[in-house]
């Protein structure tokens, strides 16, 4: 039981999202990226695989647009990747996502540990790891800020809002890690080159034998805009700008 699964998601960069005047959301200009905290997941999986003496395998469920993620993910040290390339991913909710991932993971032999991030940059719904655990009926540990693997035993520090809890579990298990678990390094040239030679298994929806329909119905998606004064003090030198700001704050009566 030595393979470690890193679940990572290819998401639209939230910094590129445009909100139109009618509050409709324009994602067409948004670049894709590996969800921020999933970079820590990949690094955690690489380290855990080393501790278990096995391989680190990335699993991602995305549309055809997610293809560029493979090179990026593999250059971060994963040994292999499994890419569920399905249009259903664009409509997937937490239920469908977990079903797709669980079905793909079931096809991988010898899985000792499944790692997800606390939450994805787009949904941030923090459901996936516990749901995968339930679907595969594996034990789950969330909010993990530190983990140690000793033989078949995983000891994890959980950061809860009122306490730090240390827990122990026998593998196989599912964990959701916080980004502070490790600093995710930037891959070097050789790592990037090696990525091109690694094995990628591509699965289609039909290969999974899982129901990928969402359980909830999305009825509306709209942008949020903040209406603020947006006044930049740029007249004169810094001293004058600061003076203008101080005067404005006095006038607003917020001091």
């Amino acid at each position: 039981m030595s393979q470690v699964i890193a679940c990572y998601k290819w998401v639209a960069d939230e910094a590129d999202i445009r909100i139109n005047a009618d509050l409709s959301v324009d994602l067409s200009k948004a670049k894709g990226k590996i969800s921020d905290y999933d970079k820590n997941v990949i690094e955690a999986a690489v380290q855990a695989a080393a501790a278990l003496g096995g391989k680190a395998v990335g699993v991602t469920f995305g549309t055809a647009d997610a293809k560029p993620s493979l090179k990026d993910a593999l250059s971060r040290g994963l040994d292999e990747a499994c890419y569920i390339n399905a249009q259903e991913a664009s409509q997937a909710d937490g239920a469908a996502t977990a079903r797709a991932l669980a079905a793909a993971i079931k096809k991988i032999a010898d899985v000792g540990l499944i790692i997800c991030a606390e939450g994805a940059s787009d949904t941030y719904s923090r459901q996936t790891a516990p749901r995968i655990g339930a679907l595969l009926d594996l034990p789950v540990v969330t909010s993990v800020s530190k983990m140690d693997i000793n033989g078949n035993i995983l000891t994890a520090a959980r950061k809860l809002d009122d306490c730090m809890q240390t827990v122990k579990v026998e593998l196989p298990a599912v964990v959701a890690v916080l980004p502070e678990i490790n600093p995710a390094p930037i891959p070097g040239l050789k790592a990037v080159l090696a990525a091109g030679k690694k094995t990628v298994t591509e699965l289609k929806a039909a290969d999974l034998g899982a129901d990928l329909t969402p359980r909830s119905t999305v009825s509306e998606v709209k942008g949020y805009v903040m209406n603020r004064k947006n006044i930049i003090f740029n007249e004169g030198d810094l001293a004058e700008q600061v003076k203008a700001l101080a005067a404005a704050l006095r006038k607003e009566g917020v001091l």
């Binding site: 239920a95 923090r126 516990p130 749901r131 359980r215 909830s216």
Partner: peptide, 20 residues
């Protein structure tokens, strides 16, 4: 943190919809 974990696991066992 505990509540979200419990809720998502319950949703997983029920394989039902969940809004976080």
């Amino acid at each position: 943190p505990r509540g979200r974990d419990l809720a998502a696991r319950v949703a997983g066992y029920l394989d039902c919809a969940m809004v976080s």
